[in-house]
Design a binder for these strands. Structure first.
Lengths: 111, 111
DNA sequence: CATTTATATATTAATATTCGGATATCTACA
DNA sequence: TGTAGATATCCGAATATTAATATATAAATG
């Protein structure tokens, strides 16, 4: 089970914070979508997602070529509350990332 | 104004997390009370409190020999929500710290 | 004043984190 | 097979964080 300080540490880096919150809002995203939305390199995104998975915050599921990340279903209530509060706090940045997502060509889920 | 990732970084260390939440619950605590409650050294407690103050999470007020720390009044709503969720998550540890506090002899506020 | 108590800060050494670039793995499909 | 696309991991360098120890400041007290 995840400890409070561990969750906070995971969310203390902008790449991890924004990836987590965007996935929280969108339900499920793959690495290439996050690269596009956050405008970051593949190894950087992948490395941070691995950390979030290892801490039990995100779950991954491979479907074909893609690996989709979603928020771990069994997250404790307090952790979900923190994601909700964080989403409110990062509203503006998240809106930009969602705009980037919508502008993305050839998104995997469309196919 | 404090940024989400910055708040999370402040709360990602157990000393800072526990000090912040205990102050959040108790209203106001001085360094020597936190030393007793968290069972940590004076320089360690003081250094972490300074960091929390610099980030705008805590406010300090000297009264006589003692410096009392409290949660910054103008904290945004999302930040207060995170403290509330964190308190729930750390309920057990906080109960222990409160027990330590009650057992402390010569607490400054009593005088 | 001199001393004591409370708190803050500086220094140093150990450890941790982060990123970029290179490379490896895995899947789909010709 | 073999090639391409998507993702993961490894490595080294730069930077940041942390704790412990020592020292400094500030207020109370005799």
């Amino acid at each position: 089970m995840i400890e409070p300080a561990q969750l906070f540490k995971c969310l203390s880096d902008d790449t991890r914070l924004h990836a987590t919150l965007l996935i929280y809002l969108e339900g499920e995203l793959c690495v290439c979508e996050l690269m596009e939305a956050l405008n970051d390199s593949q190894p950087k995104i992948s490395r941070h997602l691995a950390q979030l998975r290892q801490c039990g915050i995100l779950a991954d599921a491979r479907r074909g070529q893609w690996v989709f990340y979603s928020v771990e279903k069994n997250l404790p209530a307090w952790a979900s509350e923190i994601l909700a509060s964080g989403s409110k706090a990062s509203e503006k940045a998240l809106a930009t990332f969602q705009t980037n997502l919508k502008a993305m060509k050839n998104r995997p889920q469309c196919c």
